[in-house]
Amino acid sequence: MKTLDFLFQRLLKAILVVLGVVILNFMLIHMAPGDPASVLAGEAGAGDAKYIAQLRAQFGLDQPLYWQLWTYLQGVLTGDLGFSYRNQVPVMTLILERLPATLLLTGCAFVFSLVLGIALGVIAAYKRGSIADSLVMTSALVFYATPLFWIALMAVLVFSLHLDWLPPFDMESIGTGYTGWARAADIAHHLVLPTVTLGLFFTAVYTRLTRASMLEVMALDFVKTARAKGVPKAQVIRRHVLRNAILPVFTFASMQAGQLVGGAVLTETVFAWPGIGRLMFDALLQRDYPVLLGVFLVTAAVVVIVNLIADLMYRFVDPRIEAAN
């Protein structure tokens, strides 16, 4: 029951957060100079004032801002995210076309960075002071400090252009007509570079975080007691230290969801990955308000949901939280 109450409260908060994000974004976007009508008129090459006014009326931009917001919110509540001024298709269609690619990429990057980061962190802590520790920590520092776009470009140059091991861009081979497992393998092949590129920064973060947290826990008395009682070191690490040390990593991982979408804009650009990050970037340049707001709403919802799941998971990972409640 307690869990249900908790879930209900968190859901309510989540909805309010998403609503707040929508309203805030709506106001921010409209504060920026320029609007879709002037951008479109510019592209048409000769937007006279009459034409721009015609476009504004067509898009509803001639209405007072509060009315535009009210109309938008009404749409959102009925599942209608509006109509893209530029692409001339419903925003929901555009987002649904692109969201799976981003979820696949960010999901893989998330798993990759989390698994590898924790594993390397454990190794570094376990072998503290060894060459392996130095190697892991130096690499982590390098990847933590290196800009994502540079890693991406270097990865393309080395692994695609020179070694020809991996495809440099696209989500799948175009025009091959692959289906089933062949298509899955093709997508997996294309996933390698963007996943690793996007995941390396977070791998570095998890590695450092896990190592620090592990070393802190390893110094506690209960660990010494366990060792004194003759429990093998590997078992102590796995069953006692790691379970206690993992909580900060877990907290950071739940925050990673939002940052991954941010990173995906860059990764999707370099690797021509047909995801939502690039859609958002283009919409921003073109002042395509409905698309921007739609993407913000969906990403906010994803972040909120991930955090909600993380909150629930805490209680399983660390039963003390449930007991404290």
């Binding site: 393309v156 861009f169 175009i174 025009g175 650009t269 370099v270 690797f271 021509a272 047909p274």
Partner: peptide
């Protein structure tokens, strides 16, 4: 027979696409 117009947003990647 066919034309493909690829979407490659990054300029450096477009150069790589031509080179490859």
């Amino acid at each position: 027979d066919e034309l493909y117009f690829r979407i490659i947003p990054d300029s450096a990647s477009r150069a790589v696409a031509f080179e490859k």
